[in-house]
């Protein structure tokens, strides 16, 4: 099939970007979307032009590296599918596709379709962990977890940190990402001791990074390749409010993490 691609090109963080149009012929429906871009890049390189920079690694939908917006939809039109697993049979001959990077103040564009998502790591640094040193735990089966709760924790833990939630959100909020990690740990007994401090610190870091507020449009849930649900945002909100209204830290207690 033949495609027209309108791709955002930007040399670096401080450069101004613009759309460039490319036409590509001979695209097979069996190609993955990224393989189609590989073909374009091989062509551009052979012509002495710079290939389009895009992020990718595992190409099997789990590392979370890939992702850009195709015709207004993060990871493209197929639900619960990262762009590396999206195949060209989702499109038809003659389609015009507009490829844009994730757009958010907290995700500055590094080059073309590559953005800087280090804000996610900094949110995790504020409490997306259980403070247990290597070697200290008890036997694993000494902690019983109801299957139902464990399954819900796993649903939340399935987040791959790709950033599609931010990209799809009309407010560029990272509430789904943050809520998923808070929920994953809040649903497990191991996560209880630090539950309230975690919600407080992670949510406040989320705001500091410049992500927007959640208006519960639900776009993030629809864009999430792993099916993380809005209920995780609700749990985060509840935990945050509890941390502020009901939880009492000892006066003068150290607030240092780690």
């Amino acid at each position: 099939m033949k495609l027209t691609l309108e791709i955002w090109r930007q040399a670096n963080k401080s450069a101004a970007g613009a759309f460039e149009t490319y036409s590509l012929e001979g695209v097979s429906e069996h190609m993955s979307f990224l393989e189609m871009l590989d073909v374009l890049n091989e062509k551009l390189t052979s012509e002495g032009k710079e290939p389009v920079a895009f992020e990718h690694d595992c190409r099997e939908g789990i590392c979370g590296a890939c992702g850009f917006v195709i015709n207004g939809r993060p990871h493209g039109p197929q639900p619960k599918t990262t762009v590396c697993q999206l195949h060209m049979r989702s499109f038809k001959d003659g389609d015009r596709l507009v490829l844009e990077p994730w757009r958010a103040a907290a995700f500055p564009v590094i080059k073309d379709l590559v953005v800087d998502r280090s804000a996610f790591d900094r949110i995790i640094q504020k409490g997306g962990f259980i403070s247990v040193n290597t070697g200290s735990p008890q036997d694993a089966n000494a902690i019983l977890v109801a299957k139902n709760e464990s399954d819900k924790a796993m649903d939340a833990a399935a987040c791959i940190g790709c950033g599609a939630c931010v990209a799809s959100c009309p407010n560029a909020s990272a509430s789904l990402f943050t809520g998923a990690k808070i929920s994953h740990l809040a649903l497990l007994p191991q996560g209880q001791p630090e539950r309230w401090k975690r919600a407080e610190a992670m949510l406040e870091q989320h705001d500091l990074e410049g992500f927007g507020p959640c208006s519960q449009h639900g776009e993030c849930e629809a864009a999430c390749p792993k099916g993380i649900t809005l209920s995780n945002i609700a749990r985060m909100n509840g935990d945050y409010l509890f941390s502020q209204l009901a939880y009492s830290p000892r006066v003068g207690a150290s607030t240092e993490g780690g």
Binding site: G72, A172, G210
Partner: peptide
């Protein structure tokens, strides 16, 4: 906050 969070809008 919402406007500040997405200074560059999407084309589509």
């Amino acid at each position: 906050a919402s406007n500040a969070a997405r200074p560059v809008p999407y084309k589509v």
